[in-house]
Write a protein that binds this DNA or RNA. Structure first.
Lengths: 223, 223
DNA sequence: CCAGAATGCGAGCGGACGCTCGCGTTTGTC
DNA sequence: GACAAACGCGAGCGTCCGCTCGCATTCTGG
């Protein structure tokens, strides 16, 4: 069964011109701006269209409804996020310090969230509709699994329940730190990043029993 | 100038019957339920009235608008909160352990938030209108000042900027832990409370330089 | 017991917002 | 150049929701 017009109704039911792709990118960028400043529910499709400099009708030429805009935006962010956290959490190099590992992971995640503030806005609102929440949960679960995997190499004698709880704590602590980091700029922002790293390192350090890294007493005070 | 009908227009412009006070309490309770399950913006006044078993008109007999409901609810929570955190953060007893001080404060705050889940719902939504955000900010600032005061006795040689940053971190960490605590029940919830305490103690311990409490190496592992 | 105030009701107003529809314009294809 | 399809527009439809209004019922002071 080759690609007839009927059976691919869900994939690309419509042939896009280059202009259309540009409009889509433009609309997604505008949506990101509006979502960032007002949140998902409070953002009106008319406002998004206005921000993009097009009419409401044009917006609905490319998106079936408001939710689809957030879905598509979320999808694209997810892909970038997967790349980023792939880089951020992949190396389980046992020769590195806990401090260095945490520092690298935090730096990558923070830079991603600073580059895409809409990610935080979309994932933080309690008002997001079903589909986005599902995707968020999916990413959340994947992230937790990855963190658990990393932690298991640091804490081989922890029970699965403890491991899961510790992973949840790490992610929650990161989110809390992220909020503070995004709320400041320049030197103060850098200071909060360092504090976040301190929190994570000091939280995890006593759990390792001196297994990871050579220097144990190196993260005492912020220089 | 005694209380004529004109000059007290903003205080009690209307004499309430006992029935009215009951209705108000009933409506606030219903509002708390609805706010908890759907958030502020998504909550409709008709839904609140329905939850309370009264008509929309009756609701507007006692509240001028939707915002006023949240304001009043917020005000009552604020008062209870002030009492609670007054108890929770008041004793700066220098003879107690850092661990004990953190543990006591966390326990009191957690129990307050568990008793009034709507507090978390109202304070966490990014959709809250002006007045509530103001009150939230006011409480936030007061809390931070209180935490800073406590920290200054623990870290006498820290700069004001460091003190403020540390206080912000502590509050952020607490919020993160609270979210996890509220998301679990029973033994798992208790475990998260303990983890939250561990995070705070381990974060603050290295900063004290061994000033508070007798035992320094007592909070290593969760029993 | 009665006048007036407080309480209670629910249909419905006004406006905002998601989304549609008809029609004109641009672009790709032969 | 001609035809179809994709693009673009903006007035406006349907709906939902905060809130009002007129009227009935219950309470309270004198």
């Amino acid at each position: 069964m080759p690609d007839t017009a009927e059976n691919q109704a869900k994939e690309q039911p419509r042939r896009r011109q280059a202009r259309g792709e540009r409009r889509i990118a433009q609309l997604l960028e505008a949506a990101a701006t509006v979502f960032c400043s007002t949140g998902y529910t409070a953002a009106s499709t008319n406002a998004i269209a206005r921000e993009a400099g097009v009419s409401p009708g044009t917006l609905y030429q490319f998106f079936p409804n408001k939710e689809a805009i957030a879905i598509e935006l979320g999808d694209r962010l997810m892909h970038e996020m997967r790349d980023t956290y792939g880089e951020a959490l992949a190396p389980i190099d046992p020769s590195t310090t806990l401090e260095a590992a945490v520092g690298a992971a935090v730096d990558r995640f923070i830079s991603f969230n600073c580059d895409h503030p809409v990610f935080f806005a979309l994932m933080h609102g309690p008002d997001i509709p079903g589909r986005i929440a599902e995707e968020h949960d999916a990413l959340h679960v994947t992230l937790l699994a990855r963190i658990e995997e990393l932690l298991s190499s640091l804490l081989p004698d922890a029970s699965p329940a403890d491991l899961s709880r510790t992973a949840h704590m790490c992610l929650g602590l990161y989110k809390a730190g992220l909020e503070l980091v995004l709320g400041h700029e320049g030197a103060e922002q850098e200071a909060y990043i360092q504090e976040l790293k301190n929190v994570l390192v000091r939280y995890l350090e006593p759990l390792t029993g001196g297994r990871a890294g050579r220097e144990e007493a190196s993260s005492r005070r912020t220089p």
